[in-house]
Design a protein around this nucleic acid. Structure first.
Length: 478
RNA sequence: GCCCCCAUCGUCUAGUGGCCUAGGACGCUGCCCUUUCAAGGCGGUAACGGGGAUUCGAACUCCCCUGGGGGCACCA
């Protein structure tokens, strides 16, 4: 095992976003690739927004994705004492100072700055108060926040694997909050302290955090640690049109993809290819294969767009690589959810076997198998398919001829072949077969029909065709 | 307003000065296969955002523009 230590540190304020999942993935991949340690740390310093439910959900989703961590979860709120102790030391050493401004005052001044064309942000109002003034402010019962005093001159620099050297003039970095009036630490403090305490060597995260790095590093130095972790800030994942990924464009949480029938290995594979790639052209890989090839230096520097179409294809690829029993196990929950009352394991297995080669998502396969769990007289035929059937020339005659054929044919895969029936009616199988698919499977396209009929049994098939004919007659009269 | 980043087919990307009349994958599309739909096989469509500069030579280096993204919180 190497000394490399990475961490995924989400704020538990909601669902795990696909962008967050990719960050977790890159961290996990790097740990696996290097034989390092993957740490999970919950950054819940904002107690108002953080929820225990979110912590649980994120862990469940990470596990579902197969992203198992080696250490943690460490929960920052359980270590506030440590953060406060560091804050006290920073105050004692002169790196921090007390600020007595109220939120309202800060907002009012920021507003007037904006109006006056001055940059918004803390203005250093309490930066140099003398001891007597501080004492007086405290006496007024004002809230006390602890602020970090950033340097006034010079430059802050750090090394980033994907962007090279990142630098900013300290002059542009405002003094920021370390401790809120209620004594809880803010992200910068907790993040800096915990990275030191957990001996994190590589920080892999989204580029929305680049600019915070200077502050975190400043705290780190003030704590007496001049070393820096290696940073890798990944470009964000965008939605269609190159715009921000938002709910308007579809699913953004990992759970949604899970519920839509995507395989964790497919989503993982797809996410890995978003912002990282190899030059050998191999795209469909197992997690282990990806980990073997993955490296921080190969992270792409431009943002990528989330393309659902490619995810779908990727899912099909992984679906086809599953052994039948495994596939059945994955589809089962989706089928039970839909047809719990009439669920039948043997039929599920048979249906999966028939649909394995053509499936794209677990949901689509579950839906294709649906007719196997329906009562013959209650088979739901989807509207679109029924319209096609009704509109098909000679549909009733075809169904009647099929009944005649199926009543006496040998009940085998060869015997139930309906092509002769279609041809006898002077039609082309390619054009007419949807009539039978709809009557028997409830949809114009589905699992191979001969096998499906054999599976259902003669009585069941005849009953379904009969039901379809009755409905057709009824509509013709009505 | 200020700071930072990014820019190759519709999309993900390969490409690090000549191997590029730019390669692969998804999508789209033509044909084949075919009991439907898929899957599969064989083809096709399609890109270096614009303008300068450096160089014998630029997708690759530099500058400007344009476009997109991120940041400037008592959110992370």
């Amino acid at each position: 095992m190497s000394d490399i230590r990475v961490r995924f540190s989400p704020a538990p304020t909601g669902f795990l976003h696909v962008g967050g999942a990719r960050t977790a993935l890159f961290n996990g991949l790097y740990a696996r690739h290097t034989g390092g340690t993957f740490v999970l740390r919950v950054e819940d310093t904002d107690l108002d927004r953080s929820t225990g439910e979110s912590v649980e959900q994120m862990q469940a989703v990470l596990r579902w994705l197969g992203l198992d961590w080696d250490e943690g979860p460490y929960v920052q709120s359980e270590h506030f004492d440590r953060h406060r102790a560091v804050a006290a030391q920073l105050l004692a050493d002169g790196y921090a100072y007390e600020c007595f401004c109220t939120k309202e005052e800060l907002e009012a001044r920021a507003e007037s700055d904006r109006a006056g064309g001055r940059p918004p942000g803390y203005d250093g109002y309490c930066r140099d108060l003398d001891a007597a003034t501080r004492e007086a402010r405290r006496g007024e019962g004002r809230p006390t926040t602890l602020r970090f005093r950033t340097p006034d001159t010079g430059r802050s620099t750090f090394l980033d694997v994907v962007r090279g050297e990142v630098a900013v003039d300290w002059e542009l970095v405002r003094d920021f909050v370390l401790l809120r009036p209620d004594g809880t630490p803010v992200f910068y403090l907790a993040n800096a302290v915990d990275d030191v305490d957990l001996a994190i060597t590589h920080v892999v995260r989204g580029e929305d955090l680049v600019d915070t790095t200077h502050r975190v590093l400043a705290i780190r130095r003030a704590m007496g640690h001049d070393d820096q972790p290696v940073y890798a800030h990944c470009p964000l994942i965008l939605g269609p049109g190159g715009h921000k990924l938002s709910k308007r464009f579809g699913a953004v949480s990992v759970e949604e993809y899970r519920d839509q029938g995507y395989l964790p290995e497919a989503l993982l594979n797809f996410l890995a290819l978003l912002g990282w790639g190899t030059s050998d052209g191999v795209e469909v890989m197992t997690a282990a294969e990806i980990a073997e090839r993955f490296d921080l230096v190969d992270i792409v520097s431009s943002p990528a767009t989330f393309d659902t179409k490619k995810l779908e294809w990727m899912n099909g690829e992984h679906l086809r690589r599953l052994a039948l029993p495994d596939l059945v196990a994955r589809v089962r929950p989706f089928v039970v959810e839909r047809h719990g009352d009439r669920f039948d394991e043997e039929r599920l297995v048979a249906g999966c076997a028939l649909g394995h080669e053509r499936a794209t998502t677990l949901v689509s396969l579950a839906e294709q198998c649906g007719f196997l769990f329906a009562a013959d007289t209650e088979l739901a035929i989807d509207d679109e398919s029924w319209r096609r059937l009704v509109g098909h020339d000679g549909a009733g005659e075809l169904l009647a001829a099929a009944t005649a054929h199926l009543e006496r044919c040998d009940w085998s895969n060869e015997g139930v072949d309906l092509r002769p029936v279609v041809e006898a009616a002077g039609q082309k199988p390619r054009k007419a077969m949807h009539v039978f698919y709809s009557a028997i499977e409830g949809r114009a396209a589905g699992l191979p029909l001969w096998d499906s009929m054999v599976l259902l049994g003669r009585d069941s098939v005849l009953a379904r065709i009969h039901a379809a004919r009755s409905r057709l007659d009824g509509e013709a009269r009505g």
